[in-house]
Amino acid sequence: MELLDSDMIKFVNASGETSLKYDESPTLMLKLGGNSKEAAKLLTNTVKVICKENNNKSFRFAESEEEKFELWNARKVALWSTINYGKQKIDEDVQLWTTDVAVPISKLCTSLQETKEAINKAGFYSSIVGHAGDGNYHAFILYKNTPEEYEKAKQVVQGMIDRAIAADGTVTGEHGVGYGKRDYLVEESGEDAVSLMRKIKFSLDPNRILNPDKVFKIDPNEPEEESH
Results as ranks from 00 to 15, higher is better:
Ser203Ala: 09
Lys41Met: 10
Val171Ile: 08
Glu117Gln: 03
Glu24Tyr: 09
Asp219Thr: 11
Ala14Trp: 04
Pro212Gln: 07
Gly16Thr: 12
Ser25Thr: 11
Tyr22Ser: 01
Ser111Gly: 04
Ser227Gln: 15
Tyr150Ala: 09
Pro26Ser: 01
Leu43Asn: 11
Trp97His: 03
Val186Arg: 07
Met160Arg: 02
Lys21Asn: 05
Asp213Ile: 03
Lys121Arg: 05
His138Ala: 08
Val177His: 03
Lys57Trp: 15
Leu42Thr: 15
Glu63Phe: 14
Tyr85Thr: 10
Lys68Cys: 09
Thr46Gln: 14
Leu71Asp: 04
Ala102Phe: 07
Ile218Lys: 06
Asn73Ala: 04
Val171His: 11
Glu188Arg: 00
Glu65Asn: 10
Asn45Met: 07
Tyr137Ala: 07
Glu2Gln: 01
Leu204Asp: 07
Asn207Gly: 04
Asp91Cys: 14
Phe61Trp: 12
Ala193Arg: 13
Thr82Glu: 05
Glu70Tyr: 06
Ile119Met: 00
Leu96Thr: 01
Gly86Glu: 00
Ser227Tyr: 13
Asp205Ile: 01
His175Thr: 03
Gln113Glu: 04
Leu30Ser: 09
Glu222Ile: 06
Thr46Lys: 12
Glu70Ala: 11
Phe124Pro: 01
Lys48Ile: 09
Gly86Lys: 04
Asn120Arg: 13
Leu71Thr: 02
Gly178Trp: 03
Arg182Glu: 08
Gly173Met: 06
Leu185Met: 07
Val194Cys: 07
Met1Asn: 04
Gly34Met: 14
Glu24Val: 01
Asp213Phe: 06
Trp72His: 10
Ile165Glu: 12
Ile218Pro: 08
Tyr150Gly: 10
Asn221Pro: 05
Pro223Lys: 13
Ile161Tyr: 12
Val177Asp: 01
Ser36Ile: 12
Gly173Cys: 15
Lys201Asp: 03
Leu71Ser: 08
Ala118Asp: 00
Gly16Gln: 15
Ala164Ser: 14
Phe69Glu: 15
Gln155Met: 09
Glu70Ser: 12
Lys144Gln: 12
Glu174Arg: 06
Ser227Arg: 14
Ser25Ala: 09
Ala132Lys: 02
Leu32Phe: 01
Lys214Ile: 14
Asp205Gly: 04
Lys121Trp: 13
Met160Gln: 02
Val94Gln: 07
Glu151Ile: 07
Gly133Asn: 01
Arg163Asp: 13
Thr172Met: 11
Ser126Ile: 00
Ser6Ala: 08
Lys31Phe: 05
Val47Trp: 10
Lys152Cys: 05
Glu92Arg: 14
His228Asp: 05
Asp213Ala: 13
Asn56Lys: 00
Lys199Arg: 15
